[in-house]
């Protein structure tokens, strides 16, 4: 056999090569840094996913969203209501096969309590092109305080596979400039 004599040393007693030791220390410190940075972002960062969530029966959630849409409807688009809620208020979005419902109109720089849930399968709330991606489950109502920092038209795509119509599942959020909104408000008041 082409064998060198076996080296029978006990492995935990051997010295460690210097380069290895230095690299291990670097890797450890970097890991420690990344660990601390995640915690730090909860204090210094403005993007942390909320953990506020409730169990809810899909039918109960559907009723809440219907109610919300009815109360805040300002117009309709392709048969879908556009809801314009008050800044700071509770806003409901429903994921179902295959639609994000209703369409929202929000104001830039204002914070909203966005509720997310599904009434059938899991869906993926994917706000584009901003690229905020949140998983949506049936039976769980997830509440997120969201503040738009851009104005314009934003798409909601579904990025959790939800059956044959998955790629047709979209929604929309309009974000208006505060000035324009204020102006409209003044107009409305003046009328």
């Amino acid at each position: 056999m082409a064998v060198t004599p076996p080296e029978r040393r006990i492995w935990w007693n051997e010295p460690i090569e210097r380069v290895e030791l230095v690299w291990i220390v670097i890797a450890f410190l970097w890991g420690l840094f990344m660990f601390v940075f995640m915690i730090a972002w909860h204090f210094i960062g403005q993007q942390n996913l909320s953990k506020e969530a409730y169990r809810i029966a899909p039918s109960a959630y559907e009723a809440k969203v219907d109610d919300f849409a009815k109360k805040n409807k300002v117009r309709e688009e392709a048969g879908i209501p556009v809801a314009k809620p008050k800044p700071g208020s509770d806003v409901y979005i429903l994921g179902r096969l295959w639609q994000w419902w209703p369409i929202l109109e929000l104001e830039k720089g204002q914070s909203y309590r966005i509720h997310l849930s599904s009434i059938d399968w899991q869906h993926g709330f994917s706000l584009q092109p901003t690229n905020i991606n949140i998983q949506v489950h049936p039976g769980y109502e997830h509440v997120i305080s969201l503040t738009p920092t851009q104005s314009g038209e934003f798409g909601i795509v579904c990025n959790e596979f939800c059956g044959i119509g998955h790629h047709t599942m979209t929604g929309k959020i309009y974000v208006t400039e505060p000035k324009k909104a204020e102006a409209e408000q003044r107009l409305a008041d003046g009328r």
Partner: peptide, 24 residues
């Protein structure tokens, strides 16, 4: 993905969706 394209998704043009959306 960094530009927002979804995984497990047949149509990034959303041609059959009732509310359209255009990727960059």
């Amino acid at each position: 993905g960094t530009l927002g394209v979804a995984r497990r998704h047949w149509d990034m043009t959303f041609s059959d969706a009732s509310i359209g959306f255009a990727h960059s």
